[in-house]
Amino acid sequence: MDKKIICIACPIGCEINVHIEKDGKMKIQGNRCKRGESYAKDEILNPKRVLTMSIRVENGEMDLVSVKTDGSIPKKLIPKAIEYLKGVKIRAPIKVGDVIVENLLDTGVKVVATRTVLEDAILQLSNK
């Protein structure tokens, strides 16, 4: 069986052909680098994605902080992960790289902040 896959590991987007033998062995062609090979294998056996979105922030200079999963998570968990992260709310200040969720849905993958959100200056004053 042959499967065509577009590699999304980098912007080039190689068109990879995966030939799957009866015994499950895969022959992979069309990738221009090694990353394409592991991407194609994963795509057949267990497709994974990095999820980026934003999470609500309390008393921040912005109402949202952008976040990402620190590694890829199984694609089929994405809808669940979105639902879960929509329910998360954190307090400013937040620094880029701060861990927001230690272990997302037991995947072992962290969710980290991808930007700095300082405390709202006005709120900060009234708290003093």
Binding site: C10, P11, V50, T52, M53, S54, S66, K68, V96, T114, R115, T116
Partner: peptide, 22 residues
Amino acid sequence: CIHNGFGLHVFRKELTGPEFME
């Protein structure tokens, strides 16, 4: 641009827009 895909050439890691900015 909070999605990822930035920085592979320059910083050798995949970053989101705000991370590249930082």
